[in-house]
Simulated scan of single mutants.
Amino acid sequence: MSEQDRQKQLVGEAAAGHVEDGMTIGLGTGSTVERFAESLGRRIAEGLSVRALPTSEASIDLAHRFDIPLIDWTVTTHLDLCIDGADEVAPDLSMIKGGGGALLWEKIVASAASRRLYIADSSKLVGALGTFPLPVEVVRFGHQATAEKLAAHCPDLARREKGGEPFVTDSGNFIYDCRFGRIDDPAALEAALGAIPGVVECGLFVGMADSLIALRDGVVVTVDGQTDVWWG
């Protein structure tokens, strides 16, 4: 097991410990969340009662794999807790997400939760956002025109592909990955991108992380605010 995989396993297991009996949770997407789902599945097998609302088709598959009971929006629009991963986390706990293409569903689910807990290995902790390409989800109709407007903010962008074909999100949209470099004002950029007709959502998650589980000097810690931050 690589050091990164070991860290993913540790933070995933720690996150599972935050799930209490009777909770309705948001189930995130990604390889770190997979470790969380595996640990949660073990707790469910031992008697923990929990319901999960998925953030992607991939997280539906995770739930089935680890016997996590699923619900949908017809059951409830309120979640006790959302647990998800991140592609980058800055010292102010703003994040870039969407490397797996689930940013829209992830943001909708997170916005419905009373508490949002994110998990990340050390490689995801950065001094400033922007090294990781920012995913921007756009509707397929007129996506070429939308891309031109995106290029006014970020000339270095490309429509995401998978297997030589355009990548299509679970909502049927395209994603443009935008290489901004350093992003000094994530909130302003999020607002500017959201004002472009055709943009559905972007992968900037600003002010959404209530807590973060990560490793500091090899020890799992929970960051509950900027005063707990040590990187950057």
Rank of each mutant, 00 (worst) to 15 (best):
Q9C: 11
V223D: 06
K8Q: 06
E57Q: 14
G142I: 00
V220R: 11
V50Q: 03
G30E: 05
G41Q: 02
G100W: 14
H18D: 04
S39P: 09
D177H: 00
E190S: 15
R182H: 11
L79N: 05
G17Y: 11
G41P: 06
I71M: 03
Q226M: 14
F180G: 03
H143A: 09
G85R: 00
T131H: 08
R35S: 08
A16H: 08
V221W: 03
A16S: 15
R140W: 04
V50Y: 02
I213H: 03
G164E: 08
L129F: 13
E106C: 12
W73H: 12
I196C: 00
E34T: 03
S114K: 13
A152R: 06
V109Q: 03
L215P: 01
E88V: 05
L125F: 05
D224K: 07
A102I: 08
K107A: 02
P197E: 03
F141L: 14
M23Q: 14
A113L: 03
L40S: 01
G12Q: 04
M95F: 07
I119A: 02
G232A: 10
A158Y: 07
F141P: 09
E106N: 13
A158Q: 06
L40C: 02
I71E: 01
T131D: 15
V19E: 03
G127V: 15
P166N: 09
E161G: 12
A15D: 00
D228A: 10
T222E: 12
V200Y: 00
D84C: 09
H153L: 14
A14S: 13
A110R: 02
Q9T: 10
M95P: 06
G207Q: 10
L79A: 10
A112N: 13
P155W: 04
P91M: 12
K8Y: 15
G17H: 15
S171A: 13
E38V: 09
G203W: 05
A102C: 09
R116W: 09
E201I: 01
I44Y: 06
A113D: 05
P197C: 03
E201C: 07
H18L: 06
R43C: 06
R182I: 14
L40R: 00
D121H: 12
P54F: 08
Y176G: 01
G225R: 13
E13K: 06
G17V: 14
V138A: 05
G17T: 12
G172S: 14
G12S: 11
A110D: 12
F132S: 04
S94L: 11
L117A: 02
A192Y: 01
E46P: 06
L93V: 12
L125R: 05
S122M: 15
A209T: 12
V229W: 12
I25F: 05
F167V: 10
V136R: 11
S211R: 13
L134T: 06
A52W: 01
L103R: 11
